[in-house]
Amino acid sequence: MDAASNSNSVKNIRSDKNPYQPSENRPTKKFAPVPFLLTFIIMACFWLLFSGRFDLFHLSLGAASCLIVSALSSRLLFPEALPPGLFKCWFKFALYLPWLFYQIFLANLHVLYLTFHPRMMDLINPKIIKFDSRLKGDVSRTTFANSITLTPGTITVYAGIMGTFAVHCIDDKSGQSLPGEMEKKIAKVFDE
């Protein structure tokens, strides 16, 4: 894998455009008040939590640095105008978390059993599974890939731009349930 094949793959992804030109859908320089305010509130919460002092001097320092950070990088946290249903999405994601933690716990116990088993070499059967995911958005695919990696026994090796996933499984049992239920739950969270 050297520079030539790398640039080849980049050209394949966006074939019609020169990759070194800035793309048209760059964020506009217009001031967006709602992302700015949200970023400011989040930064202020973190400042209060990390400093832990409430006298006037520290609060004014915090307000100044939060203003600078949110003026510079509010477009990083919220890239476009706020999509509708963002808070509902976060709420549903919070409902998804307990199931994910239960799954992580079960699979952790399985890997722990494998690790301490004396005949471990007979039990494991590492292989790479490839499948296509039907998730569309970037955020949902990232969540899916990270959930797969967090569930022990499976690691996302490759998550493509067209929805192809390659997953390394440690044995047959942990690879069986892919993509399955987790993909359905994430699709429900992100309304796809």
């Binding site: 992580i104 716990f105 952790n108 890997v111 722990l112 690790t115 494991i124 590492p126 990696t149 967090l150 022990p152 026994g153 690691i155 440690i170």
Partner: peptide
Amino acid sequence: SRLHPAGKLDSA
């Protein structure tokens, strides 16, 4: 396969 215990049993 070493990454399986290294990354995730440690985070657990």
